[in-house]
Structures are given as structure tokens and as C-alpha cells.
Design a protein around this nucleic acid. Structure first.
Lengths: 221, 221
DNA sequence: CGGCATCCATTTTGATACTG
DNA sequence: CAGTATCAAAATGGATGCCG
């Protein structure tokens, strides 16, 4: 372990820290908020407990992740990104944008799916210009998971958990999100076709559906 | 081989394609233009010929890399990025920017260094606003390697090889580039202190040195 | 639940020798 | 120079057992 490329290069140095298998997916999970050990086990099938523990320890040692104790009443240990870890977001989102355009297509047999991934996908497609002058809070409920998005000053933040005081609430299920990820529908169309229920401030909803630039999928060649 | 995360997620799908060891560094090399098999061997120490061949074959099969024949008089085989491969640039550059801020510091004992990496670093730090309205071509000569940069419409392209008709030429050596990468000097300071020789259009040179926003290195915590 | 330790089968990698 | 072939070392995946 701790193999290094031994290159004085910013890309190589970064990959020395986060380039090993599973590491960037752990970061991806943390981009929507702190996670417990078992949260990772649920969303990262194939990653054994031993390797997960080793990866978390490595990220902690390297100052990308901090071990925390969840506030009462949970009081259970969890992991959160440090500032350095949080700032990996642009890189992870760039990988996600590339994947949306060049690598998504249909869901393959046996592929796992979690709502949080789609929420991060929305963030990756966020278009600051479309959100100019808007300040709004949205809540997404999807199959007993809840996320929220805070839009402000042309920025978006997407996190696990309920919103404080949402301007609008969107309720839907995994199937719709999968269809969106596969490019078969859009947020606007899903609402129009009653596959997603939207309530709250109509203005905030209109702004929401125009806020994302979803890349047109392409074949690689 | 061809292990997959088995997740219907854009980030995971991308990492299925380019997340294995060495793969993104191969892409990094190709971001400054086509490379021959031996070019990779020279810049990627530790990557054996067998694994290199396997990685290139994989990238070719997946439509990220295309095998080409270099134009006369070379006529030797080489590898170039496809459109899909080229569009990995934002992700690689995002990783590089993170590394400049959070992972660079001093050059460590035994770390390799190549001018091309610094040139890519410049591209990663390029600030479109600073280059607004500028159209210029620069040539960089550093220890028997030559690169050029084309600046146009707030975009930059940095490639291996001489410029067609450079507006300015900057000549320097690895040591200066290492100092720049370590944050110990800047392009402007290096020219001022005669550690880099700049010739050509003074206007183009003034614009050049103001064109990059080099991140302030931070300690992770 | 949270997490570490251990054992083992399988993959991946690194290094080198070899060939057209 | 452009790769193949080969083999040893390391990383991973999966299971299981343990302990607070």
C-alpha cells in the first residue's frame, strides 16, 4: 500500500492520494454529507469491511476526511470531508459530467442505483447562469431517502437530509431518476407526466426545471 | 481484468473506464499531443511495457484513444486521443488544480519531472477573463523539449512541438519550472530574474504573465 | 452497529527477458 | 523501437470470527 507514482506533477500527486480503487467513490458518497460505516457498506457493494476501514483511515491520515460523532440523538460515529476533501468536488463532478455524456446509456443488468448519485448528477449539471438572482431551497424525497438543494448566488449545494424550510418539494422514485440518468426523461417531463409530484412555490419550480444542462449522450469513437 | 463497480452512476462508470492505475496519467501525456510507445516509457517510470500495452489496448477498445501513424518522415506508430478522450481534459485539469493547492509543496527525493507536466499545469491555471480579446501564440523551449500555447477567445491550447509563428518565445529549464510548480517563483519573476529568456512581442509577453491564477498551496487538515 | 484481524482465492502490478 | 511472454510481489474480494 501507499504506492506512489513518484512524479512531481499535480495530477500524479492527487492520484497518489485518491487514485486507488474505491477512494473517489467514498469521496462521492461524502459529497452529499457525512456517512456512517454502514452507509458506505450499503452504497458500495463489493467493497469489503477491511478495505473500507483501510481507505477511511488513509483518507483521515491524509487530511481529506475527518471522523466525527453524529449529533444527538444518534451519537454514532461517522465520516465527513475536510475542506481539502470538499474541494475535490470539482474533480468528481467533472468525471461525472464526462460520464453522463460518454458512458451512461442504459442501466445494465445488476447495476446498483441510489438516489444520492442522481442528486449529485443534478449538481454536476447545474448551470449558474440559469440560476442567477435566485435564492431557493428544494427538498427531494425519493423512496424513503431525502435530499435538499440550496440555490443561492448562482451556486448549488446538494445534501442528504431534509430542507430547513423548502420553497418546493419534489417527490418521486428511483425509476424516474434512472430514466433521467439514462436521458429518457427530464425533471420537467417527469413532473408534467405526474411521475414526480411537485408542491410549493410555482415560481421556484419553474426556475428549478430550467436550472440543469444535461449533456446529450454520445457514442465514443 | 475489466472489473467494474457495477453502479449506474456517471462517476463510477467513468472510473470503470479510466480509474485503473496509470490510465489517467496516460491520458495526461496525450493531452499535449500524440505519443509513441517509448514516449510513455520515458515519462511513466514504473509502468512496465506489458501493462502499458494493455492500457493502450483497453483505451483504444473503449474509444478514448486511437492508434495513428505519425506523418512523414517519422512514419512510426503513435497514440492520440479521440474526441471522447480529449474531453477528459476538464477532469484531469480539475485533479491537477486540486493537487496544486493541496498536494504539491517541495519536490521529493527521486521524483521525476517533465516539462510537459508544467505546461499542463499552466493550462490548468489559465484564467479566461485575463485573456479576453487576446489572440496569440507562444513557444516554450525547455531542455531540448518544445511546447506551444495558442490563446484565442479566452481559451488556451497547450501542445507538444514548435509553434507555427510564435508571437513570443520563452526559453528556460527544468529547474525554473520545478520552482514554479513548487510555488517558489512565477513566470513573471523568472523572466525578470533572467532565469527565463523571453523574446518577441512585448505586449504578448505582458499578457502572458498575467494569464494564470496559480493556487496558493494549503496544508490539508 | 462499528470496526479490526485473519485466512485464502483471484487479480493486478512491476520487473525483466525476449522477439520481430 | 514496439511490443509479447513470463514470473514474483502486491492489492483486492469475500468470508468469517471477534470484541466493545
Amino acid at each position: 500500500m501507499d504506492r506512489t507514482y513518484n512524479q512531481f506533477c499535480a495530477t500524479a500527486r492527487t492520484l497518489d492520494l485518491v487514485g486507488e480503487r474505491w477512494t473517489l467513490l467514498i469521496v462521492r458518497e461524502l459529497l452529499t454529507g457525512p456517512k456512517r460505516f454502514s452507509d458506505f457498506q450499503n452504497s458500495l457493494r463489493g467493497l469489503g469491511t477491511g478495505l473500507l476501514a483501510a481507505r477511511l483511515k488513509h483518507l483521515e491520515r491524509e487530511g481529506l476526511v475527518r471522523k466525527i460523532t453524529l449529533p444527538a440523538p444518534a451519537r454514532t460515529p461517522a465520516y465527513a470531508l475536510t475542506q481539502a476533501g470538499t474541494e475535490l468536488a470539482p474533480a468528481v463532478l467533472a468525471l461525472a459530467r464526462w460520464g453522463m455524456k460518454w458512458a451512461m446509456g442504459e442501466r445494465r443488468e445488476g447495476e446498483a442505483f441510489h438516489g444520492g448519485w442522481a442528486v449529485l448528477g443534478l449538481r454536476a449539471c447545474f448551470d449558474p447562469e440559469s440560476a442567477e438572482g435566485l435564492r431557493a431551497m428544494y427538498e427531494f424525497r425519493v423512496s424513503d431517502e431525502v435530499f435538499h438543494a440550496i440555490v443561492e448566488n448562482g451556486t448549488i449545494e446538494t445534501m442528504h437530509g431534509p430542507a430547513q424550510r423548502p420553497d418546493a418539494v419534489i417527490e418521486t422514485d428511483d425509476e424516474v431518476l434512472v430514466d433521467m440518468a439514462a436521458g429518457r426523461t427530464t425533471l420537467a417531463a417527469a413532473i408534467r407526466e405526474h411521475r414526480a409530484q411537485a408542491t410549493g412555490d410555482p415560481d421556484a419550480l419553474v426556475r428549478l426545471v430550467g436550472m440543469f444542462r444535461i449533456p446529450q449522450p454520445q457514442a465514443r469513437k
